[in-house]
Simulated scan of single mutants.
Amino acid sequence: MKLSIVAAAAALALAPTTTAWRIYLYNWEGGNKDGGYHTNSGPGGKGERCHTIGNLNNKVSSIQWYSKNSETSPTSQCDVTFYNSAGCKDRLAGPYRANFFVDADYLGINNKITTYKTRCWPM
């Protein structure tokens, strides 16, 4: 039994990553990390998609973005663009291709994000 668990864990560790991008949107107003967060990830390949952020609508104060499915040998690259309206209308900022972790105020979009669009392509 222990051997099969170890084998399964090893196989999982060696399996390729299935997501090409990952985003974390935080509500850290007043320096309080209890304001909630939104996280999402998506597949690689080619295409774009608009995403909603649920209860963090117009409450995002920090953003963490990962644009590739692997740092060592990526197969996909993605960018992210932020919008002020439903359906990814009224662009606020972006597209951003590189990984980053930033205060939304630095980008001039603190508490303004309603939706975001991801766009990916194979490398």
Rank of each mutant, 00 (worst) to 15 (best):
A10N: 09
F100Y: 11
V102D: 10
G108A: 08
Y26S: 01
W121E: 03
V102C: 10
N58K: 11
N111G: 07
F82L: 00
Q77D: 13
Q64F: 07
A7E: 11
A13F: 02
Y83A: 01
R22N: 05
C88Y: 01
N55P: 13
V60I: 07
T19A: 04
I109A: 02
P122A: 11
A13T: 00
F82C: 02
N57P: 05
C120F: 00
S67P: 00
I53L: 06
Y37R: 08
G44I: 07
Y106E: 15
P16W: 03
F101T: 15
A8P: 06
V6R: 08
G42Q: 06
P74G: 05
D90A: 14
C78A: 06
K89I: 10
N40Y: 10
T115H: 01
Y96T: 09
A20L: 01
W21Y: 01
N32S: 14
N111F: 04
Y24Q: 05
K117G: 02
R119K: 15
L12E: 06
T39S: 11
L56N: 04
K117V: 05
N99I: 07
I109Y: 00
S61C: 07
Q77C: 13
C50V: 08
T18P: 05
D105Y: 12
G45K: 14
Y66R: 05
F101N: 15
M1Q: 14
S85F: 11
G87D: 09
L107A: 09
K46L: 14
G30N: 13
T19V: 09
